[in-house]
């Protein structure tokens, strides 16, 4: 029923070292996301997705976990660029942010974000969120191709 054989590659776009580490630890612990790559700003995210610059040999991720408040190029700009490109638009983007602003959420969905998740403050909830997110996108979700 579900295809466990294909490894799922997450790209985490996160400038905060600690938050990136916390997500990575939770993913490792719950064995979700067979591969996780990380870039720390919006421009690097687009370089990664377009396989250019220092990321020329990067493989396209299956899912993008995208922070909004990023250096160089904001998360909303990354999202709209990605979703307006027919080659990349099918890649699911989960916005993973501390922003609870309605305007950010509405704008993200208007730019076709697949999900919008606010980072929980509580440790257990944070772990549950990463586990469920990982499980959903790596096991239950079926990509178009």
């Amino acid at each position: 029923m579900t295809d466990h054989s294909k490894p799922v590659h997450f790209l985490l776009v996160e400038d905060d070292e600690d938050h990136a580490d916390l997500v990575a630890r939770a993913m490792r612990e719950h064995r979700v996301g067979n591969t996780m790559s990380r870039v720390a700003d919006g421009e690097a995210a687009l370089d990664y997705l377009y396989q250019r610059g220092g990321h020329a040999k990067a493989s396209r991720p299956d899912v993008v976990l995208l922070d909004l408040n990023l250096p160089k190029l904001g998360g909303q700009e990354v999202l709209s660029t990605l979703k307006s490109d027919p080659e990349l638009s099918a890649i699911p983007v989960v916005v993973l942010t501390t922003s609870e602003a309605d305007a950010d959420r509405v704008k993200a969905y208007a730019s076709r974000a697949n999900s919008y998740v606010v980072k929980p403050l509580d440790f257990q909830q944070f772990h549950d969120m990463v586990r469920q997110l990982g499980m959903y996108w790596s096991i239950w979700n079926r990509p178009p191709a």
């Binding site: 600690d18 916390l22 980072k119 403050l121």
Partner: peptide, 8 residues
Amino acid sequence: VTIMGYIG
């Protein structure tokens, strides 16, 4: 988020 995470 960082403080709560690492305290956990």
